[in-house]
């Protein structure tokens, strides 16, 4: 069965919307937003910390999260909070660069940890992480954009080009033994104009590792379109779930009724 995965983007301890990886607007209290998403019987939930600076002042006393906003700590708090609220598989990531961080997130209730830039900057760490925690615990997040006549992989929140072709890069992370690849189109991020069907199709047909498509979801039919790709593992989105009441349930009902192999939607009490 194919999955629909809400992504909660966190910056400086706040839930944000993102557009082309550049503009971020605050959606508010992660507590409330996570409770809502988790109550919707999602197939899996992803929390990504996309904070740009390592040290940020906390202006929001109302968040009641009491994190110290040094690197990583807020993600751990949110992971702990989320894992208490849900029994859905929980995958978390953002600036993962050492084994201690992974251990801390797993012990806070994460089921899988998502690694992005380190696959390019620190191969040894990634190999060690897969050896230590098992490939089934690690997801590779790969951000890409059309740049100089080719789809190239970008790291560090899309600010740095690796000059590596997307398919080549995805094969590299797959060969290291990750459980899945989260492929995110920077060009389509936050625009709501549909998933990158052509590129995702190509990735799915070239790779043996499962692919989760991300970037561009704007309406339910976008999910129907991308999930029709044979062999795709799932589709993820962030912004779309913030604007509509019961958006996850309605989307899943739509997908189910259109005959796609998804879990039967249920309304929770």
């Amino acid at each position: 069965m194919k999955r629909v995965i809400p992504i909660v983007l966190i910056a400086q301890g706040r839930v944000v919307l993102s557009r082309n990886f550049a503009r971020h607007s605050i959606q508010g209290d992660p507590n409330q937003i996570l409770s809502r998403l988790l109550a919707w019987d999602s197939d899996e939930v992803i929390i990504l910390d996309i904070s740009r600076n390592d040290r940020v002042k906390n202006f929001r006393d109302d968040l009641k999260l009491k994190p110290d906003f040094n690197t990583g700590s807020s993600l751990t708090d949110l992971t702990r909070l989320s894992s208490k609220l849900t029994m859905t598989p929980l995958s978390v990531g953002g600036k993962i660069s050492n084994l201690t961080q992974i251990e801390e997130l797993l012990s806070s209730g994460a089921d899988r940890v998502i690694i992005n830039s380190s696959f390019s900057t620190n191969r040894k760490f990634c190999v060690d992480a897969i050896k230590e925690f098992g490939g089934s615990t690690i997801i590779a997040s790969v951000d890409y954009k059309f740049y100089k006549d080719d789809f190239k992989v970008f790291i560090r929140n899309g600010t740095e080009c690796t000059n590596t072709n997307l398919v080549t890069y995805c094969k590299y992370v797959s060969d290291l033994g990750v459980s899945e690849v989260l492929a995110n189109s920077i060009d389509r991020d936050g625009l709501g104009k549909g998933f990158d069907i052509e590129v995702i199709n190509k990735l799915v047909s070239h790779l043996q590792t499962p692919i989760i498509a991300c970037g561009g979801a704007g309406k339910d039919s976008d999910f129907i379109e991308v999930l029709q790709i044979e062999g795709i593992s799932g589709a993820a989105a962030a912004n779309i779930f913030h604007f509509k009441e019961n958006s996850m349930y309605l989307l899943k009902r739509n997908l189910f009724e259109s005959g796609l192999p998804v879990r039967k939607p249920r309304i929770r009490d």
Binding site: M1, D43, P210, S233, R263
Partner: peptide
């Protein structure tokens, strides 16, 4: 074994 529909690892909800 992989097929066009079945990837490895086998990840996700199954019946």
């Amino acid at each position: 074994k992989t097929s066009s529909v079945h990837k490895v690892p086998n990840v996700g909800w199954r019946t």
